[in-house]
Design a protein around this nucleic acid. Structure first.
Length: 492
RNA sequence: GGCCCCGUCGUCUAGUCAGGUCUAGGACACCAGGUUUUCAUCCUGGUAACACGGGUUCGAAUCCCGUCGGGGUCACCA
């Protein structure tokens, strides 16, 4: 997600993420070499390292440049010799000696002095084109018209533009330069760049800090893979392995990938809305004068425009995302919410489905207004998932709801118990009605009955609506819990 | 360090291009009240920002310069 590269194509074909132009680049390369815009270079990695170190020692920034006395004839002869013998060498692009101008839809006009970008490699010793070469050719061949990517790529753009200005097709047609739009980066709350590697980073650190553990229970990962992953911080473990390792070490991983947010119970519309607002806004007001920031995908499609993308980096605010998600959950029609929750459970918590059985829809309606993410769905109905004997009565709640006041909570409970039998059917609506009727007939406030009931059913003084609370437990369950409460919660 | 980008409440931002209507608006979070059978929701109110210094101007959050701060990037990786 941190690397938001996407591309719009003229032909409507799929954007490329891993350029596959390797086989078809040779013609482009040849024309560049013939024109002297690319040239073979024979330094070894070691030699380059030394040159770099030497520049460093002189406190200069190292840049590879074609030598003043570059012997083209000799170099080409050497190139042909190596081609014949199979010895490796690289091809470099000669950066033009005029500044490169980049027009960015977000940042505006930017001038890059060619002095600061070197003659970069476009074909590696292994014969494959580098990323820079491959994307430019790939995008051109696919008819890409817009390139939206993270600002981290801004410094690559002069290379790409320079390449576009010098590359030609077989028939001599020049390359086009697509519209570039560099988007602000997304940061973690601590200010570090939000990265797909963040999760690996956390787990790697934990594994490294506990050497004994490395040999312990990591059987699901081969030693070779583990060592490689431990040694290379750009390497990522498969998601399943990572999740398992995190669990073994008791680590909480941040949500990074879309799948992470799905697992955590965020609704697609909420994530999409929040993300769209990070670095962009429609610039419109609601009727009450507040900024318009809650919107759906059709709205986004209609109003999104490159011009209103911000330039500065943004921190990813989970609190606000949570608020958006809570609102999105609350806004769903009950049936839709139940369906969404059911789907989530099928994927991540089938145990809850089994435990709830036919009570699922009722549980969903009880949870809907009280949760911020689908993954919190067990919390508000936890009492209904426990057996009557497992309910632990909270001392404070018991004292407040059952022992204090007049009439005494226990007495009200005992009395209400007798009217349970007549509630028919035993559903939220009838339960609520019965509770109301009971209170009116005794001329007591709703709280006088509601709170003792809550304590009896859940052990505490917080629960969903009474109808839902009692309904979830069922008539027999309610009777059992009231009896247990009446027996166990008498004042000392 | 070189180069590039950025700098409005704690966070995301409106306002900046076309200087006055900005004693700087909204959202999230936070605090205080209120509604409600608890919780959640909902309603009302509140705390809180133009990084700093010069300049231009009758007037600057808005234009210019400098400083400071943050970030990105400097590979035969993508």
């Amino acid at each position: 997600m941190a690397a938001r590269r996407s591309a719009a194509t003229r032909a409507g074909s799929a954007p490329s993420t891993s350029p596959t132009a390797s086989r078809s680049t040779s013609g482009f390369l040849d024309r560049l070499v013939e024109a002297g815009l690319a040239y073979p270079a024979f330094e070894t990695g070691e030699e380059l390292g030394e040159m770099r170190a030497a520049a460093q020692a002189r406190k200069e920034t190292y840049r590879y440049r074609q030598r003043e006395d570059y012997d083209r004839e000799g170099a080409h002869a050497e190139m042909r010799r190596r081609d014949a013998s199979g010895e490796p060498y690289v091809l470099r692009f000669r950066m033009p000696d005029t500044p490169v101008h980049v027009t960015d839809a977000v940042l505006g006009e930017i001038e890059f002095d060619q002095q600061h970008t070197d003659d970069f490699v476009i074909r590696k010793a292994d014969g494959f084109p580098t990323y820079h070469m491959a994307v430019v050719i790939d995008d051109e061949l696919m008819g890409v018209t817009h390139i939206l990517r993270g600002q981290e790529h801004l410094n690559n753009t002069p290379r790409h533009v320079a390449l576009q200005q010098h590359l030609t097709h077989e028939d001599g047609t020049p390359f086009r330069t697509p519209v570039y739009a560099h988007m602000p980066l997304i940061f973690n709350p601590d200010g570090s760049k939000m990265s797909k590697r963040d999760k690996d980073k956390i787990v790697r650190k934990a594994v490294q800090s506990e050497p004994e553990a490395q040999a312990r229970s990591l059987a699901h990962i081969s030693q070779t893979d583990l060592d490689a992953w431990l040694a290379d911080k750009t390497r990522q473990l498969p998601p399943a392995s990572l999740l398992r390792l995190a669990a073994e070490f008791g680590l909480e991983l941040p949500e990074i990938d879309v799948e992470d947010f799905r697992r955590s119970g965020y609704l697609p519309e909420a994530l999409c809305n929040y993300l769209a607002l990070l670095g962009w806004n429609p610039g419109l007001k609601n009727d009450d004068g507040t900024d318009l920031e809650r919107f759906d995908k059709p709205f986004l499609c209609e109003h999104f425009a490159l011009e209103r993308i911000g330039k500065s980096n943004a921190k990813f605010d989970r609190e606000k995302l949570l608020a958006f998600n809570q609102a999105a959950i609350a806004a769903l029609p009950a049936e839709d919410f139940a369906a969404a929750l059911h789907e989530w459970c099928e994927r991540y918590d089938t145990g809850l489905l089994d435990a709830l059985g036919e009570r699922f829809v009722l549980a969903a309606s009880a949870a809907q207004p009280r949760i911020k993410t689908l993954s919190q769905c067990r919390e508000p109905i936890a009492f209904a998932l426990a057996a009557a004997e497992e309910i632990r009565f909270d001392d404070k709640a018991v004292a407040k709801a059952l022992h204090k006041g007049e009439p005494n909570g226990l007495a009200v409970l005992a009395e209400f118990r007798e009217s349970l039998a007549s509630i028919e059917p035993f559903d939220p609506e009838q339960i609520e009605a019965a509770v109301k009727a009971f209170c009116e007939s005794r001329e007591i406030g709703m709280g006088k009955l509601a709170q003792p009931l809550r304590v009896a059913i859940t052990g505490g003084n917080v629960s969903p609506g009474l109808g839902e609370t009692l309904g979830l437990v069922g008539r027999d369950g309610v009777l059992a819990r009231i009896d247990r409460c009446l027996r166990d919660c008498v004042p000392a």
